[in-house]
Design a protein around this nucleic acid. Structure first.
Lengths: 107, 107
DNA sequence: AGGTTAGATAACCAAGTGGTTAGGTACGAG
DNA sequence: CTCGTACCTAACCACTTGGTTATCTAACCT
């Protein structure tokens, strides 16, 4: 699975997006991350592994804790990808796009 | 499944992203969309249904053709969501963010 | 009417996903 | 040393997914 697909797949789950949102407030242990959810530890572990494989989090090792930290660089690729479609929803951008195309055709 | 999850799930497949890329050049029939891929018609049909349920395409009806058209509005929600994480990858944005936080704390 | 083309549906299969429980490892505290 | 805590792996389950082939409908063209 390519990087972008892995990122999109990881983001497709609300629990994982909530974990990322929590991590914007700083690193957290697995226990802390699992608090808001009504699911078992192993389920959280699996979500974290998906996020880790997608490169969205990195994990440290402190005694018996394995602190998680956000790594948002894959999200930059997501926005870069989505930017190619901006002209299809952003009216003002579409006008600019049309203008640029027109100018290019005049060359 | 919520809208955002459906969109991310739809985008997690390279074939579906390629279909969207093709549709930026204008509407296309199912046959046209399936040309570049080495998979069966029903497989394409399934991909199109996923894209349709995610609101990324709309489908018309012309004689025996069912032309597909891009609808990028869900992608706007994707960028809106990702924008909340920009400060974690964009250094200059992070500095601006820190400045704003500092100003807020002075109030 | 008969044949061809576009496309959808149905039934099936292998693999993946999101969850569980049970049990194992590693570390700190008493 | 033993106990509790944090976390992981393994095995299992129901459901979904991405693909297939076979079959159906709908429209066009002779």
């Amino acid at each position: 699975m390519d990087q972008l697909s892995a990122t999109f797949a990881a983001l497709a789950d609300p629990t994982r997006r909530a974990i990322l949102a929590r991590l914007t407030e700083g690193p957290a242990t697995v226990k802390e991350l699992s608090e808001p959810f009504d699911i078992s530890g192993p389920a959280i572990s699996k979500h974290l592994r998906v996020l880790e494989k997608a490169g969205l989090i990195t994990r440290g090792r402190e005694a018996q804790w394995r602190p998680c930290q956000l790594d948002a660089t894959p999200l930059r690729e997501v926005t870069v990808w989505a930017e190619n479609y901006r002209r299809f929803w952003d009216a003002s951008y579409a006008r600019l796009d049309a203008l640029l195309t027109e100018m290019k055709e005049k060359d």
